[in-house]
Amino acid sequence: MGLLIAIVVGCVLGLIFGINAPIIPYTYSGYLAIAIVAALDSVFGGITSVLNKKFDMKIFVSGFFGNAILSILLTYLGEKLNVDIYLAAIVVFVGRMFTNLSIIRRYYIDKWSQKKQEKEDENKQKTV
């Protein structure tokens, strides 16, 4: 419960800060975009690991910041080589996001149908 509150509070504060904060210099906005995608991907990965009861704080945090920094470096390298490396990063991150999302979806749908099943069983027992 506390966790949920913390997450919500963090989001709200982030919203307020982000909307009223200064603009990022235009040249860096490209790097920032790819970092955001990487961060989102690691968040979804974190949620999946929670569902699998394999959540590890260290892995989550290191993945969060590590992926972001790595993707920034790769984009910069790509610019220097005149090769759009960031495209590959986007494909990977968004692919993983879809995978994680489908796991979460399957988990909750299973859970919901399990609950439904249990309720029907209860009703059956009662009638019997």
């Binding site: 963090g10 989001c11 504060l13 982030g14 919203l15 800060f17 982000g18 909307i19 904060a21 200064p22 603009i23 990022i24 906005s29 920032l32 975009a33 970092a35 955001i36 961060a39 989102l40 968040v43």
Partner: peptide
């Protein structure tokens, strides 16, 4: 995450 997203 949210802050940076909205700044972007």
């Amino acid at each position: 995450l949210i802050a940076v997203m909205f700044m972007q």
